[in-house]
Design a protein around this nucleic acid. Structure first.
Length: 258
DNA sequence: ATGCCGTGGAAACCACGA
């Protein structure tokens, strides 16, 4: 089973690129973030026509997450994190596919620091950590995929020294990512490529993609009950070079035995 | 070192992203 995550930066603006990538790479499961579309403006028919079942959690203007499944039936489990108010931004959706629980998240950016947005990021992370501890304790196979808006280490940023005051690289954010791995989650890309420079995001500005001035902020965390099935991973970075593309590239993992 | 670009939505600019 091949599982991908892709921050599309606007599902409707990105539809041609998304459909082309789906056709070329045919992932079995896809987690999408930053739909930037209300529930009723999600391009459901185009996704169905591409051969995918889909569940989504939309929102007017901002945020929004979706999970697509090509081969296996998809069953939505929840939308939003436990303990979140009903009208919270659409940043989490979860579904069961092929016996695996797939959590798709869009963690708050948190800039500028300090300020209410950074406070919100830290609050969101705390709620997330309480829930991820429950997931680990449950013992079921879980994949938490999405845009974490966290640069885990200096290896994950072009010129990390420029990011020390940024919400993506602040000690609180990095420690939160460490705390998740301490719970038992495994950073899939780092398990396979412990020391490589791998980026998943390149700014639209300053020819960042051309200079490979990127960040690694889109991640897969795997529960102990599925981590041994991890066989391969990668970033479809050529997609970042396409016309009318997102500032993120799709990231994927391959799991054996599913 | 910086929203210089991209998107959506409202309004002919602004909020937001990372």
């Amino acid at each position: 089973m091949k599982v991908a995550t892709y921050n599309v930066n606007g599902i409707n603006a990105r539809l041609p690129v998304l459909l082309r990538w789906l056709e070329q790479t045919a992932p079995d499961v896809v987690c999408l973030q930053e739909l930037k579309a209300p529930q009723e403006k999600f391009p459901e028919q185009a996704i169905l026509d591409a051969g995918y079942q889909v569940v989504w959690h939309g929102q007017k203007s901002w945020n929004g997450v979706a999970i697509l499944s090509r081969t296996a039936e998809i069953t939505e489990v929840k939308r939003g994190l436990p303990g979140e108010p009903e009208d919270s931004p659409s940043r989490y959706i979860e579904a069961k596919i092929n016996g695996v629980l797939i959590g798709c998240l869009y963690l708050p950016n948190g800039n500028p620091v300090p300020g209410p947005k950074f406070e919100y990021k830290l609050e969101w992370i705390e709620r997330f950590k309480v829930y991820t501890a429950e997931l680990i304790a449950s013992g079921i196979p879980v994949i938490l995929a999405g845009d974490y808006n966290i640069i885990p280490t200096e290896l994950d940023a072009y010129k990390a020294e420029r990011w020390v005051e940024d919400a993506l690289f602040r000690p609180e954010s990095r420690e939160a990512f460490k705390a998740l791995t301490s719970q038992g989650w495994t950073d899939a890309v780092r398990k396979i490529h412990p020391e490589e420079r791998i980026y998943t995001y390149w700014d639209y500005f300053r020819n960042a993609y051309g200079r490979d001035a990127g960040l690694r902020i889109d991640h897969f965390l795997l529960s102990p009950s599925i981590v041994n099935q991890l066989a391969a991973c990668g970033v479809d970075r050529d997609v970042r070079g396409w016309e009318k593309t997102s500032d993120h590239g799709p990231v994927w993992i391959q799991l054996e035995g599913y």
